Amino acid sequence: MSIQHFRVALIPFFAAFCLPVFAHPETLVKVKDAEDQLGARVGYIELDLNSGKILESFRPEERFPMMSTFKVLLCGAVLSRVDAGQEQLGRRIHYSQNDLVKYSPVTEKHLTDGMTVRELCSAAITMSDNTAANLLLTTIGGPKELTAFLHNMGDHVTRLDRWEPELNEAIPNDERDTTMPAAMATTLRKLLTGELLTLASRQQLIDWMEADKVAGPLLRSALPAGWFIADKSGASERGSRGIIAALGPDGKPSRIVVIYTTGSQATMDERNRQIAEIGASLIKHW
């Protein structure tokens, strides 16, 4: 058993032996400061991975655009179909130039040979490839079927209504393609630790998130040596930015963190910096 498999397999085991986890309101002070700095709403939640207890939250039940963070949920739905014998990670999917949409750094290189379902999930999560996400959405029946999958998990909040890139429109008060921090954190925890997916599929999902290559300026920039993080970021119109993550010290995840912001006029660099500073406060007061 690899170190990674050891880590995921023991998450339920550690729940019975973990020390009490204490919240630190200092992080919420930073979240509120980020709102002031960005001139935008910020949603935040910090969840204990083992118990599911909410440690801190700010606007946990307000809607925010999901942006590309939905791609983790999408690959969770794909893995659920794999577990049920309805899909194979090794199945190759062929597509054409007409299928390519904006920001497809991986799929645009494989027009001649296509990509496997496994490769598409990797591209969608680690590189946020939009065509990969659309191709995967097609395999499960489209955005409405992803919403149905989430409903069956008990998440009646999170919804996907459109495809890439239209889902990134982020119109104020538009509930399409949105979630709430509390709903996203709970759903992510179920995917990573619950019985919905097999152990192998849970491991695969967290491996893809751990290999994320496009979230460096966010929480990863504040991470001390030896800490673990598996994450997925997102960005969209109207100053929207977000990240969902499982992270913790000693090389294993122990908390879920979800951060969303929307409605800012700030630059992408400034949005990144504010999220990184929230992460730094979280780690300092861990």
Score class of each variant (00 low, 15 high):
227 W>R: 01
129 D>Y: 00
7 R>S: 13
5 H>R: 12
185 A>T: 02
223 L>Q: 03
218 L>V: 03
136 L>H: 00
78 V>R: 00
278 I>A: 00
285 H>Q: 07
71 K>R: 01
252 K>R: 15
24 H>T: 09
247 L>I: 13
89 L>A: 06
9 A>L: 10
192 L>A: 05
163 W>Y: 11
66 M>A: 04
280 A>V: 11
35 E>K: 00
238 R>Y: 13
65 P>A: 06
7 R>Q: 14
165 P>L: 04
267 T>A: 10
81 R>F: 06
38 L>I: 08
269 D>V: 12
20 P>R: 14
191 L>E: 00
164 E>P: 03
182 A>P: 04
210 E>D: 07
173 N>D: 13
284 K>G: 08
85 G>E: 09
63 R>L: 06
38 L>H: 06
229 I>F: 03
61 E>V: 11
53 K>T: 13
182 A>E: 11
47 L>Q: 07
201 S>N: 07
129 D>E: 01
182 A>V: 15
4 Q>L: 12
27 T>L: 07
68 S>L: 00
121 C>G: 05
50 N>D: 15
226 G>I: 00
178 T>Y: 02
18 C>L: 06
140 I>T: 04
83 D>S: 04
207 D>A: 14
212 D>S: 06
89 L>Q: 04
69 T>Y: 02
229 I>C: 09
283 I>N: 02
160 L>I: 10
184 M>L: 05
182 A>L: 15
129 D>G: 01
134 N>L: 00
16 A>Q: 13
213 K>A: 13
263 G>W: 07
82 V>S: 07
256 I>D: 00
200 A>Q: 15
40 A>R: 03
39 G>R: 12
30 K>V: 11
50 N>R: 15
26 E>K: 09
10 L>M: 15
83 D>P: 01
82 V>P: 00
83 D>A: 04
21 V>A: 15
180 M>S: 15
220 R>L: 01
198 T>H: 10
217 P>S: 11
80 S>K: 14
37 Q>E: 11
285 H>R: 08
208 W>I: 03
109 K>Q: 14
218 L>K: 00
234 G>E: 02
89 L>T: 04
125 I>H: 00
278 I>F: 04
181 P>V: 05
202 R>P: 15
233 S>G: 07
218 L>W: 02
243 I>H: 01
178 T>S: 10
140 I>V: 11
151 H>R: 15
12 P>H: 13
127 M>C: 10
275 I>V: 08
247 L>W: 06
157 V>L: 08
259 I>S: 01
89 L>W: 05
240 S>T: 07
59 R>T: 10
245 A>T: 04
145 E>K: 13
43 G>H: 00
168 N>E: 02
29 V>L: 13
243 I>S: 01
259 I>G: 00
228 F>A: 06
88 Q>P: 02
146 L>H: 05
211 A>D: 13
164 E>Q: 03
198 T>K: 10
222 A>H: 13
72 V>F: 06
111 L>T: 13
13 F>W: 15
133 A>G: 08
283 I>G: 01
109 K>S: 15
135 L>K: 04
4 Q>E: 15
25 P>Q: 10
183 A>F: 07
90 G>T: 14
95 Y>A: 01
243 I>M: 05
217 P>A: 13
167 L>G: 00
187 T>L: 06
41 R>N: 08
187 T>G: 04
260 Y>G: 00
53 K>F: 09
245 A>D: 01
272 N>D: 09
152 N>G: 14
80 S>A: 14
235 A>D: 01
235 A>G: 09
161 D>V: 03
9 A>I: 12
147 T>L: 02
260 Y>N: 02
241 R>K: 04
248 G>A: 02
214 V>A: 08
153 M>R: 06
29 V>G: 12
266 A>R: 11
57 S>K: 12
269 D>G: 11
31 V>L: 12
